[in-house]
């Protein structure tokens, strides 16, 4: 009985944590005013929020007396892929020059996203980048 009760309380706690973090992610997505700062809220807070929901699902299955661990797979997958999608979106922002641009790197010539062939450089440095999107 105590295990089930503990699982119920754990589910309660994890559901609350997940709800708070997904809400923070959504608020950050709407509130912040620069494409790069906007990237900070959803990619991490939403991942942690959904992670908490998945853990809640796991502890709920223990509360029902049919323990399962396979939610951990989805959790691991989300945590592995979140940085990659964030990186791609940051690259898109750099490519479209939608944010403040960083200085050139000290050790190398330039950042790889901005490293376009010499002939295309004039088009690429216009405000909205090449007309792909």
């Amino acid at each position: 009985m105590t295990l089930e009760l503990f699982a119920v309380y754990a589910t309660l706690f994890l559901l609350s944590v997940g709800a708070v973090f997904t809400l923070v992610a959504a608020i950050g997505l709407v509130k912040l005013n620069d494409p790069m700062t906007r990237l900070h809220a959803p990619t991490k807070a939403a991942t942690v929020g959904i992670g908490a929901f998945l853990l809640a699902s796991m502890s709920h299955s223990f509360a029902l007396g049919q323990g399962s661990f396979h939610e951990l797979l989805v959790l691991a997958f989300l945590f592995v892929t979140a940085p990659i999608s964030a990186n791609f979106i940051a690259k898109v922002n750099l490519h479209k020059r939608a944010c403040d641009m960083p200085d050139a790197p000290k050790h190398d010539e330039m950042w790889s996203t901005l490293d376009v062939p010499e002939s295309d450089r004039k088009i690429a440095t216009e405000k909205n980048g090449p007309a792909t999107g």
Binding site: K44, A82, N87, A90, P102, W111, S112
Partner: peptide
């Protein structure tokens, strides 16, 4: 990227 407050955006060429 996963530790909040920072996002890795690009690598130099």
């Amino acid at each position: 990227t996963l530790t909040p407050g920072t996002v890795s955006a690009d690598l130099s060429n």
